[in-house]
Each structure stands twice: as C-alpha cells, then as structure tokens.
C-alpha cells in the first residue's frame, strides 16, 4: 500500500521526470534519438574507441580482460613523449597493440639484464613489476620511428613483441 501511494505521488508530482523517462513518441523524440545515436557512433568510432584488452604484455598497468579507450586526437597537436602509452594499429583500428614508448627518434636503446638503458643511462621504470634478464645490443631509433615495449617484461624476449615502429602507426593515446 505505501509503495502504491509513493508511485502515485511520484507520477503526479514529477511530470517532467515522467516525461524524461517515458516521453511521447513524436518528431522531437525521434530527432533526439537520431542525433544521440549518430553522435555516439561518430564519437565511439572515430574519437574515443573502446578497447577490450586481451593479453598480458602491459601487465600490471593494464590487465587481461580490462577495458580502456583509445583517444584518437591525442597526438593531433602534441608530440609522442617517452613513457606515453600508445595504441599501435595493425591493418586497421579493430585490433591494436597497446605499448609504452621508451625511445624517440635518435635515442639509443638497449637492455642489460632486463634493465632498460636509454642513451647510455639506466632508466627507472616504476611501472615494470615483472622482469626477465633481457639483453639487447644498443640500437638507434630511426627518424620518424619510436621504440615501444610492453610493461610486462616477465616473458622471454622472443615471446614479447616490441621494437621500433613507424609513428604513422600510432593511433592515439589511452584514457584512462
């Protein structure tokens, strides 16, 4: 009985709320639905692409099965910086790799017993929790390229996909 009374009171006293949730089917509503649908399509297809993470290469920063968004305009007016997490495309934007930038054009990158060495100096990487003793001879990142690697260095070097990648393959940054 009290529940029924509350319902009646709600319907009587809040027509604006009732109209918001149960609006009349008219041209205005159809226009709103169309605009909302179109906006969502454009935003979530071209600007803020939802991504489900499959794989362990960025653990513990991004865990297998978690969600994030790729923010496409991230590097429209900004340069890629070291430590940025970027999405790298393959043949399109439905499957992308999530990696961290550790070297920019001209940088010399090497791994010594699992420690990243950039331009001859050891890099402190608080985001790396799992580390195997990777050893990679120094190499200089070419112009127009960046050097990317995942945060999970607990696998063997052969099984982890990392290296220099053309900047035009970077699709954007990630949020959050």
């Amino acid at each position: 009985m009290p529940e029924h009374s509350e319902q009646i009171t709600w319907m009587k006293l809040s027509p604006s709320i009732r109209n918001f949730f149960l609006p009349a089917l008219n041209k205005s509503l159809l226009r709103r639905i169309l605009i909302t649908g179109l906006s969502c399509y454009l935003i979530f297809t071209y600007l803020l692409i939802p991504m489900r993470i499959q794989g362990h290469s960025m653990e513990p920063t991004y865990k297998n099965g978690s969600f994030t968004f790729c923010w496409r305009p991230r590097y429209l007016y900004a340069e890629v910086k070291r430590s940025d997490i970027v999405t790298v495309r393959l043949s399109g934007k439905n499957t992308m790799l999530l990696k961290r930038v550790v070297g920019l054009s001209g940088d010399t990158i090497e791994f010594k017993e699992g420690i990243l060495v950039r331009n001859g100096k050891e890099v402190v990487e608080p985001y790396v929790k799992y580390r195997n003793p990777w050893n990679l001879k120094p190499r200089t990142v070419e112009s127009g390229y960046v050097y990317v690697v995942g945060d999970n260095r607990g696998t063997s070097m052969a099984r982890h996909r990392f290296g220099h990648v053309n900047q035009n393959r970077i699709m954007g940054g990630v949020i959050p």
Partner: peptide, 13 residues
C-alpha cells in the same frame, strides 16, 4: 585462390 601470404613486420627489435 590465395597465391601469396606475407606477414607484415612492422615492429622490429
């Protein structure tokens, strides 16, 4: 018929 398969190596150590 598929006549060639090439793996694109876009990330190299």
């Amino acid at each position: 018929l598929f006549s060639s398969f090439t793996v694109v190596e876009f990330m190299e150590h």
